[in-house]
Design a protein around this nucleic acid. Structure first.
Length: 435
DNA sequence: TCTGGGGTCCTAGGACCC
DNA sequence: TCTGGGGTCCTAGGACCC
C-alpha cells in the first residue's frame, strides 16, 4: 500500500516576495494578478484582515487603512524559486509529481517514520529555500490533500505537518472538512451533493459509489473512493506532453481599432509560439479569440475561430500569419474589446514531424532562426527581437504592473540582484548547484 | 480607469459511414 | 425509397484544478 505526501508552499507568491524583502515578515502582504487586476496571493495577516479574491480597485481603501503591502506578480522570480523548491523535494523522493508551481506529490512508500520525515522535509525547504510549506501525508492523493488542508488551517497542527496514515483521527478529519473543500469537488457539485445531504468529506466517503457514478460521473466516483483510502489516482512521474498552449490576457485598456488588435494578437501568437518552441513541440491548429468586457453595460461579442494548418509548425512567423488571418475573420467593427488570446493545439513533438516535399518552408533554416530568436530574447529580455506586426512602441494595451517588487522598496533591482538576494539565504549546495 | 491566466478531463450530441 | 443499428470522429460545453 502506497503512502503519499503533498507538499504545498504557504502563500507562495507572498513568501517569494518576502525572500527579496525580509522586512515583509509578519506584515499583511498581497500579490496581484496580471494587469494588477485581482488579489491572487495573501499572507496570513492579510487573510485575517478579510482580504479574499477581490478586485484590487475595490479594496484600495482597505489596503490604505491597514497599510497592506501590495505587489504585482513577478513570474520570473516565482518560477526561479519554484525550481529550487522542487530540486530540494526531489532529494526526499525521486518518485515525485510536480503538481503546480507551488505543490508537489511525493511517494513516501517504504519510509518508516512518516512524521519525522515530513518534518525533515519541511525544515529543509525552509532552510535552503526560505519558503515555509505545509505537508499532508496519507494513503491516497485525495486524502493527502485533505490532511494538508487541515495542517494549514488548524491551529492545533502547529508544525504544518499532518500524517493521516493509520491515524485514529482519520474519521474526525473527514468529518471536519466540508464536501466543497475536498480536492476534486467544485462549487457546482458541492451544491448538488448538499441537495442529497452530503455535507462533509465523511459523508462523501460513505456514499454509495454506484449511486455517485449514476448521478455524477467517474471523476467524482474516484474522488469518493480515494476518500475511503482506496488508491485510484497514481502519481504522474513524467510530465505529459502539453495538449494545448495558450497565451491570453486582458488588455491594459479597451481596444476599438483593428490595427492595435493586430499588434496584440501578433504579440500573443509570438508568446504562444515561444512557449511551444521551448517545449520542442509543433502544432496543427491555431485558435484566436476576442472578448468584450462583460462587466460593463454595452454590446457584447465573444468570437473565436480555429484554423487548421497544412503541416504542423513551430515557426513563429507562420503562427502569427495564421492568427492574423483568424483575426480578420472574427473582427467586427463597433465593439470595444477587453481581452484576446491565441491557443495552439494538436501538439506533437517537433522532431516527429514528417517532412513533406510540398511544404513551402525549409524547416531546418527555420529551426536555427527560431533558436537564435529565443536566445536573444532569453538573454536580453522578452520582446527584444520581434516581428514587425507586433509593433515597435510600448502600446497602451500592454500590461499594468505598478507594484513590481524590483521597483518597490530598494529602487530598481535587476534580475541578477534578485538572484543574489535569493542566494544570500542559502548556505546550501542545492542553491550553488542550481546556479 | 480598474474584475487573472493557463490548463485537464469527461460527456453529449451531431455528422458521417457501413 | 424507407428504416434501422452500430461504430467512429469531432466539437462544444461543463466540470474541475492551480
Amino acid at each position: 500500500m502506497p503512502f503519499f505526501a503533498i507538499v504545498d508552499c504557504n502563500s507562495f507568491f507572498v513568501s517569494c516576495e518576502r525572500i527579496l524583502n525580509p522586512n515583509l515578515k509578519g506584515k499583511p502582504v498581497i500579490v496581484l494578478s496580471n494587469n494588477d487586476g485581482m488579489v491572487v496571493a495573501r499572507s496570513t495577516e492579510a487573510k485575517a484582515l478579510g482580504i479574499s479574491w477581490d478586485a484590487y480597485h475595490l479594496i484600495k481603501d482597505k489596503i490604505r487603512y491597514y497599510d497592506i503591502q501590495v505587489f504585482s506578480s513577478n513570474y520570473p522570480l516565482y518560477s526561479e524559486i519554484s525550481g529550487r523548491v522542487m530540486a530540494v523535494l526531489r532529494e526526499f523522493s525521486p518518485r515525485m509529481e510536480v503538481y503546480s508551481c507551488d505543490e508537489a506529490f511525493l511517494d513516501l512508500t517504504g519510509i518508516d517514520n512518516l512524521d519525522a520525515y515530513g518534518h525533515m522535509i519541511r525544515d529543509t525547504v525552509l532552510q535552503y529555500c526560505g519558503i515555509p510549506v505545509s505537508i499532508g501525508i496519507a494513503r491516497t492523493k485525495t486524502l493527502a490533500k485533505l490532511a494538508n488542508r487541515i495542517a494549514k488551517k488548524s491551529p492545533k497542527v502547529k508544525t504544518g505537518v499532518l500524517n493521516l496514515v493509520d491515524s485514529p483521527y482519520l474519521d474526525v478529519a473527514l468529518k471536519r472538512v466540508e464536501a466543497k473543500d475536498v480536492w476534486g469537488v467544485g462549487r457546482r457539485w458541492a451544491e448538488r451533493l448538499r441537495g442529497n445531504s452530503i455535507l462533509t468529506a465523511y459523508d462523501l466517503a460513505q456514499a454509495d459509489s454506484k449511486w455517485i457514478l449514476k448521478n455524477f460521473n467517474i471523476v467524482l466516483t474516484r474522488t469518493a473512493l480515494e476518500l475511503q483510502g482506496k488508491f485510484c489516482l497514481p502519481l504522474q512521474l513524467v510530465p505529459p506532453i502539453s495538449k494545448s498552449i495558450m497565451h491570453s490576457m486582458s488588455f491594459g485598456k479597451l481596444i476599438e481599432d483593428f490595427e492595435s488588435l493586430r499588434q496584440v494578437i501578433s504579440t500573443y501568437a509570438a508568446e504562444s509560439a515561444a512557449k511551444m518552441w521551448r517545449e520542442q513541440l509543433a502544432c496543427w491548429s491555431v485558435l484566436v479569440f476576442l472578448e468584450t468586457n462583460r462587466f460593463i453595460q454595452e454590446p457584447q461579442y465573444y468570437p473565436s475561430i480555429t484554423l487548421q494548418l497544412p503541416y504542423p509548425t513551430d515557426h513563429t512567423g507562420e503562427i502569427i500569419q495564421t492568427a492574423l488571418s483568424g483575426l480578420d475573420n472574427i473582427y467586427r467593427d463597433g465593439y470595444r474589446y477587453n481581452k484576446g488570446g491565441v491557443m495552439l493545439s494538436g501538439l506533437i513533438p517537433a522532431e516527429e514531424r514528417q517532412t513533406s516535399l510540398l511544404d513551402p518552408y525549409d524547416r531546418e533554416k527555420i529551426a536555427s532562426l527560431m533558436k537564435a530568436l529565443d536566445q536573444v530574447n532569453t538573454t536580453f529580455g522578452p520582446g527584444t527581437l520581434r516581428y514587425g506586426s507586433q509593433g515597435f512602441r510600448r502600446m497602451s494595451w500592454q500590461m499594468r504592473q505598478n507594484h513590481l517588487s524590483s521597483q518597490n522598496n530598494q529602487g530598481l533591482m535587476t534580475e541578477h540582484q534578485q538572484m543574489k538576494r535569493i542566494c544570500e539565504l542559502g548556505q546550501s549546495t542545492y542553491l550553488i548547484r542550481a546556479l
